[in-house]
């Protein structure tokens, strides 16, 4: 018993002690510099805090009435943008997703589709919206196009990943019957990826609604404009009403899509 060691240390994640200290030092240095460059305007902060409290309190007295028409108009616009852009996005994402699946598409098609997807995914919605507003004018049309554009990349990428993961057995079996390419996709691939596509579409519907609430900030339609105006006028009770409506719709949508996904499974 006496021969056994009395100390033991867990082997560290990074074996070299020098590298460990160096990395630790760099992280600490970065954090210190980053923190130092946040200039906080304490006077402004102190002035804002009572306002913050007033805002939190206004969640218990939301005002749906005074700007009721604007809220309804804004929500309707957001919902219209959400629905149309999701449908349009799915319609365009399906061919793109087929093209971006390595096991289906020839190499040049694959690369082209992947490029489109990458572009759509790297550009933040609001940036795209700024440009669409410049091109198509203010209003929900620009917003709808923005949401469509980002839905395409999102759905196509995940759809392509699902197609690449299909069970290869039925693929060969249907091809062996002498089916055409379209028949092959229809019989061998579609049944396997349909649940995933439906799930993705519902998920994207949800995201699009949340995003549609933001686009109004740059003039691309939706409830965001109403919220922005309310905050500009310091009408916190109206802003609270808008936020509560958004939260309620998001939660309702999430709940419903959960139910639907359950049934699809």
């Amino acid at each position: 018993m006496a021969d056994y060691p009395t100390v033991w240390h867990k082997p560290p994640l990074i074996a070299s002690a020098g590298l460990r200290w160096l990395l630790g030092g760099l992280v600490a240095l970065y954090l210190a510099t980053a923190m130092a460059t946040i200039d906080i305007n304490w006077a402004r902060l102190a002035a804002g805090l009572p306002r913050g409290w007033r805002f939190v309190a206004s969640f218990f007295t939301p005002d749906f009435i005074s700007r009721g028409d604007e809220i309804i108009e804004g929500l309707a616009e957001s919902l219209a943008m959400t629905v149309t852009s999701t449908v349009l996005g799915i319609a365009l994402a399906i061919p793109l997703g087929l093209g971006a699946a390595r096991n289906l598409a020839p190499r040049p098609v694959y690369l082209a589709c992947r490029t489109v997807i990458a572009t759509s995914r790297t550009l933040q919605e609001l940036i795209v919206a700024i440009f669409f507003v410049k091109m198509f004018g203010f209003g929900p049309f620009a917003g709808m196009l923005t949401l469509t554009f980002s839905s395409i990349g999102f759905i196509a990428k995940l759809l392509a990943e699902r197609i690449e993961a299909v069970d290869p057995g039925p693929l060969d079996a249907v091809r062996a019957t002498g089916a055409s390419w379209l028949q092959w996709v229809n019989y061998a691939i579609q049944p396997q990826v349909m649940p995933r596509l439906a799930g993705l579409s519902l998920y994207r519907l949800d995201i699009n609604f949340r995003e549609s609430a933001v686009l109004g900030i740059v003039g691309a339609g939706g409830i965001g404009a109403t919220l922005n105006t309310a905050l500009d006028r310091y009408e916190y009770s109206t802003a609270a009403a808008v936020l509560l409506s958004i939260i309620a719709i998001v939660l309702a949508a999430e709940y419903t899509s959960g139910l639907i996904r359950e049934r699809l499974r």
Partner: peptide, 9 residues
């Protein structure tokens, strides 16, 4: 230390 020794044992 006693626990560690015991563990090695």
């Amino acid at each position: 230390p006693g626990d560690i020794q015991q563990a090695f044992h």
